[in-house]
């Protein structure tokens, strides 16, 4: 449905700031596709190119077979875009915003009410309130409604869950799953690694490069090595020691524990090495890597 091939984009007078370099990405029809990456990875730039708001320096983007550069007029009625920043009229009410966006697409709220019903019932009590006076979560819901009101074929959401509390985030992803069931192709970006499992497929992006893409399970099973985890109160010393052991590819602090990426060594070898240096390590366990581990491993490979 969305095909991104060899897209590059630079900023600055001489193009010295590379935002995207040779991006290739494929989003299939009816899929919930996630673009996962930290701040500044190039997610918004890529989305702006996909939504016809920005011209790429090179490469080709097609959405539903339409060229994002040449056929931008047709595409704009097929796309629903929710920018990362709240971009509705703060001085208009909830109902006025929604009516405005429905009517410029030549449709009405009633015509596509089934799409937004679940979200809109939560907004309804605040119908007459100005959008600027809504809470953060409610603003997100209104923005989603406005992006959906013309029944787009493709919905592009730029970091919709950033700055939203944990419960609302979960709720938001459930809404996206339901929209996917309506047959809408969804492309969504997020900096939160734990949201990866909510996507059908995802791409990992860092510094304008796609590190990897695939299903969440596929990405995890593609993790080449063994991943060990240990917990110790002396975590920084433990890291320094482990990094020096032959056969350890990478060691990094992950929350409260130390993750060790290794192909050659097992739990016992690490525990023994730490004991030799007098570090009281708890149990060293072999664990299944998370998306974040995959991400960090890929980043390590690139750099």
């Amino acid at each position: 449905m969305i095909s991104v091939s060899d897209i590059s984009k630079s900023f600055g007078k001489k193009g010295e700031i590379k935002a995207l370099s040779h991006i290739n990405m494929e989003v299939r029809e009816g899929e919930l596709f996630g673009l996962l990456g930290p701040d500044g990875a190039g997610k918004t730039t890529l989305f702006r190119i996909v939504t016809t708001l920005m011209l790429p320096d090179s490469g080709l983007v097609t959405v539903g077979g339409y060229n994002a550069v040449k056929d931008f007029k047709i595409l704009r009625s097929k796309l629903g875009y929710m920018p990362g920043r709240f971009s509705l009229y703060q001085d208009l009410t909830v109902a006025e915003n929604l009516t405005f966006y429905a009517s410029i697409f030549n449709t009405t709220i009633e015509a596509n009410y089934h799409l937004i019903r679940d979200i809109y019932v939560q907004l309804e009590p605040f119908k007459a309130r100005r959008a600027g006076a809504l809470s953060g979560g409610m603003k997100q819901k209104l923005a989603l409604c406005c992006a959906l009101i013309h029944k787009p074929e493709v919905l592009v959401l730029d970091e919709p869950t950033t700055g939203v509390d944990a419960v609302s985030r979960k709720e938001f992803w459930q809404m996206l799953r339901r929209l996917k069931d309506e047959g809408i192709t969804i492309l969504v970006s997020t900096p939160y690694m734990d949201e990866a499992s909510m996507c059908d497929r995802l791409a990992l992006i860092q510094q304008g490069l796609i590190l990897d893409q695939g299903t969440p399970d596929g990405l995890v099973s593609g993790f080449p090595d063994r991943l060990l985890s240990l917990a110790t109160p002396d975590i920084y010393r433990a890291k320094a020691i482990v990094e020096k052991i032959d056969g350890v590819d990478d060691a990094y602090i992950f929350g409260e524990s130390l993750h060790i990426k290794t192909a050659a060594l097992n739990e016992k070898a690490i525990a023994a090495a730490l004991a030799a240096h007098g570090v009281a390590a708890g149990e060293v366990r072999s664990i299944l890597p998370s998306i974040e581990d995959v991400f960090l491993a890929k980043m390590h490979d690139v750099s």
């Binding site: 016809t52 704009r76 796309l79 971009s87 509705l88 703060q90 410029i104 697409f105 030549n106």
Partner: peptide, 13 residues
């Protein structure tokens, strides 16, 4: 400044 033009730009306006 408020970014509302961004949302407007993806409409047929």
């Amino acid at each position: 400044e408020l970014g509302t033009i961004e949302q407007l730009n993806v409409t047929p306006i």
